[in-house]
């Protein structure tokens, strides 16, 4: 369904994506992890053309999406994207956030769009907040609304760019729960995340990136238990016990 072929991206002389080749099948849930600056966010942002690429091709359903002839707006309306910072529209209510795109782009009537949005809000457990403004919600609730908003365009693919990294710890679970139920319904998902529990439970595959390269791809079990690449081993041990390898912090 998604196919990256020899994708390269530079920021000036910095090689952000180094010859990426990857395929995501329909219904597959892929978790992308790696240290910060590894290119994982850049990679996921190229999948809906939020970032341009300098060489290679990205195909979604056989369409070369970075081709100039592809309508970027039509492309994006078929791909749900969830951001680290939620990016809800603060001047609209929760319901309006979810109905804006269906009404304007899918040309649904007010009633239809409201029904659709209420349905989705109900799925993420926030139907009772429909008339609230984003500023009245917690981070976890905002992110669940963002998921509902993305789903309202009925996309066959959902992309998540560190959806839980900006959340307080006690709110991570509710967002992961919403993502898990989505995965179990057969949604094709690419998630940049460090949530190992999530990866273990629902991911079909884990991709480990560093310095713009894919260093390892494996099933969650084998990745977390027997990572092969030394960089992946170090990354995982850093996540699990950050003090061990670097020693105690010292005063400068």
């Amino acid at each position: 369904m998604i196919k990256l072929k020899n994708v390269n991206k530079w920021y000036g002389s910095y090689h952000a994506l180094d010859d990426i080749n990857e395929t995501v099948a329909k219904g597959e849930v892929v978790v992308v992890c790696g240290p910060s600056g590894s290119g994982k966010s850049t990679m996921i942002r190229t999948l809906n053309r939020l970032e341009a690429i300098q060489s290679g091709n990205i195909f979604i359903d056989g369409v070369d999406i970075h081709d100039r002839s592809v309508s970027v707006n039509a492309l994006r309306s078929g791909i749900g994207f969830v951001f680290q910072q939620f990016n809800l529209f603060p001047h609209l209510t929760v319901l309006e956030n979810c109905t804006l795109a269906p009404r304007r782009l899918r040309k649904l009537g007010a009633k239809e769009a409201d029904d659709l949005a209420m349905n989705l809000l109900d799925r993420v457990g926030l139907a009772h907040k429909a008339c609230a403004y984003p500023s009245e919600l917690s981070g976890g609730q905002q992110q669940r609304v963002a998921i509902a908003r993305a789903l309202a365009m009925n996309p066959p693919v959902m992309l998540f760019d560190e959806p839980t990294s900006a959340l307080d710890p006690e709110m991570v679970g509710e967002v992961l729960q919403a993502m898990k139920s989505l995965a179990k319904e057969g949604m094709t998902m690419v998630c940049v995340t460090h949530e190992m529990g999530f990866a273990r439970e629902v991911a079909d595959r884990v991709i480990f990136m560093d310095q713009g390269k894919v260093l390892e791809r494996a099933t969650p079990e084998s990745f977390f238990q027997r990572p092969e690449h030394p960089r992946a081993q170090r990354f995982l041990s850093d996540i699990r016990s950050p003090w061990v390898e670097s020693g105690m912090p010292q005063a400068c």
Partner: peptide
Amino acid sequence: PRGQMESSRSLGFSYLATMRLVIMPQ
């Protein structure tokens, strides 16, 4: 925030529609 433009564009809105519906009102 830049994210406002990005999230609206990600939903499939054009640049001008984003300006009109999301950016300008705020």
